[in-house]
Amino acid sequence: MTTTTAVTLSGVTKEYGTVQAVAGVDLTIRSGEVVALLGPNGAGKSTTIEMLLGLVRPDQGSVQVFGTSAVDAIAAGQVGVMLQSGGIIEDAKVGELLTLVAGLHRKPLPVKEALDRAGIADLADRKMKGLSGGQQQRVRFAMAIIPQPDLIVLDEPTTGMDVESRRDFWASMHAETARGRTVLFATHYLEEADAYADRVVLMRDGKVTADGTAAQIKASVSGRTIRATVPGADLATLAALPGVRTVETRGDVVLLQCADSDDTLRYLLSNTSAHDIEVTSADLEDAVLAISAEQETLA
């Protein structure tokens, strides 16, 4: 490996009609990183990945993969991709499909090895259309590792998998990252980003809103969540308190995201009939919510 940068996106934008799918993304991924692209549906994750892979041409900005264009990096077998859905041939057998993909690459992983690593050795003679969603995802995963790529890109790889399949899938994935591959995966599952990524890139409305380790992102939201039962709570007053970022209610239960929970607690105890109060520090989900809320306030 002569270069230490796997992917560079510089100021890429993409508009579909009046929708700004990606509104200026700068992202550098170093070799060996495992990066989660996290965000809700419509955040621009898929479009960003499509531009990274050269499937979609950015309106502005530039994309480099291993110092060259995506097309050249793909032609050199440096990139393995697992897209969200489609992209397979329904009437082909698993073994045939993998043999074909291996035949298209210069230094492919032996098909048997790919089947084993994806945990689908028993499916080689099955047709794609008879497989469950999770099984098909594993075939896509096998297709992604066949090139023996330096970079693996996965767009919501565990969509449609049950909990157990997801765990198995990430175990297979972990074996690949242990081989030093660079990985970029899009997900809207926070726990996946938290558990499997070295670095989390948070996207919203076509922009990167946070970028760092899961721990850094959690820490960036220094606040706490207060959960309390407050009968007849005056939400507007609560929301206006200096330390409060957002207010949510579930019946009489009020959830307060706070930058400074101490002041809020004092207020709750002295001015309201709040009881059953719990204070928790932010987990990644709270952090994501808080960052998103900040974005909304700014907008």
Binding site: G54, L83, G87, H105
Partner: peptide
């Protein structure tokens, strides 16, 4: 079926 997309992601 998006197969052509898959092929574009191969050499």
């Amino acid at each position: 079926g998006g197969w052509n997309r898959t092929l574009r992601l191969t050499p």
